[in-house]
Amino acid sequence: MSATLTAAAPTANNLGNALEIRGLVKEYAAGKPVLKGIDLSVAAEGITAIIGPSGTGKSTLLRCINRLVEPTRGEIRLRGTELTGLRGKELRLARRRIGMVFQEYNLVERLTVMENVLSGRLGYVPLWRAWLRKYPEADIQRAFMLLDAVGLPEHATRRADALSGGQRQRVGIARALMQRPEILLADEPTSSLDPRTAVEVLELLARLTAAENVPVIINIHNVELAKRYARRIVGMSGGSVIFDGPPEDLRTHHLQAIYGGEDWL
């Protein structure tokens, strides 16, 4: 099945999905796979939440997609483009199509909010424009639009390290959307935030990505939030997918299988 998929040109079914992952394996040490053959198709819209205990490879899975981590085996296709094995310029051109939001925001602390947002265009603008901060007018307009959208209209010239956690993650979302990504990866985007801010940031992420038709894969620890915002839940345990379905199908016995034990429920 997967062999025919590899050989054939993208079919209509493939084009319907933003992302196709087949047989993805990652071994940090040989013979000890963290990901044990993941198969996952992600639709071209909506939020897919990945839940699972710490250390089960959720973060590795996301980082394999934009190749911050090098997959050991398997295929990852972004709208028909095979991502594994890309090098140099081709890899950079693929990465700019994939936005990423990080648990600890990963803003460049000593740059301004505007510089951080515009850094989402680094995959598009020539080097001299990046160095001299001479971004095209359209990019600057979009950056201001996104800052308004994430609720930070007055913060463009502030340094990123002057912001609160919630504000930083809002900038992180603006930076990712600045790329006009075809898919957005969010790695525990709310785990460093207080409960109220976490909901606000997730709400924002859901609203903006829906408005721009960007599908989202989100790693998240909070099962309740996952059920509230995702149209699909993927449960991982021990490097494999053991649940895949809509939130309403996720039952207690699934959670026991994903996280192990039952006392915590």
Binding site: N66, L68, K89, R92, L93, A94, R95, R96, R97, I98, M100, F102, E104, N106, L107, V108, E109, L111, E115, S119, G120, R121, L122, G123, Y124, L127, A130, W131, G172, R175, Q179
Partner: peptide, 19 residues
Amino acid sequence: KQVEAIRATGAGVMKVLAY
């Protein structure tokens, strides 16, 4: 972490250095 985030945007070596 900051380097990783800039790499993830598709920036090359010189842009990663600058940003």
